[in-house]
């Protein structure tokens, strides 16, 4: 099973601020029918409320909120930005954002863990994703 469907991966995006970057990343899942736009807002609100803790490591943010009715099915998207996104975190600037949407505390765990393991074992994974020239190359890094 793939971790993130290639249809949910985008590259060469630009955003003027972190709110717009989160919106672009979440909108991939709105377009694929996995979430409603309320979830996008919930992801933004969570950063406004709790701070930029979603920037988990240098260059990488995991946008997410709590399981809710705004999530139609558990899914993930990944967007690579051409410009630096500033969240106000020690791990700025961000270039790769994954949006995680989950319906409960279990369904998404396996796929998220597999991505996490890849990042944990390869500290250059985010740099490699940024340097990819095609969506297929990104998919191989994330799903291979």
């Amino acid at each position: 099973m793939e971790n993130i469907n290639i249809k949910n991966i985008k590259m060469n995006q630009t955003a003027k601020d972190w709110q717009q970057a989160l919106t672009i990343t979440c909108n991939v899942l709105v377009d694929s029918g996995s979430i409603t736009s309320e979830y996008t807002q919930a992801c933004i609100d969570s950063v406004l409320e709790y701070g930029p803790y979603i920037v988990l490591s240098p260059g990488f943010a995991l946008a997410h909120s709590r399981p809710s009715e705004a999530v139609i099915k558990s899914d993930m998207s990944l967007v690579v930005f051409d410009n630096d996104i500033i969240f106000g975190s020690d791990n700025d600037p961000v270039r790769v954002i994954i949006c995680l949407a989950c319906t409960d505390h279990h369904q998404h765990v396996e796929r998220l863990s597999k991505i996490g393991e890849k990042m944990f074992e390869d500290e250059h994974l985010i740099e490699k994703i940024i340097q990819c020239k095609t969506l297929e190359d990104i998919s191989v890094l994330i799903n291979g």
Binding site: I54, L56, L62, H64, S65, H105, L112, S113, E117, F120
Partner: peptide
Amino acid sequence: VCGFGVGSSMMLKMNIEKI
């Protein structure tokens, strides 16, 4: 611990277990 106990904390949990 993370904001909702489903995303970042899940990744952290896995990494702690692994170590």
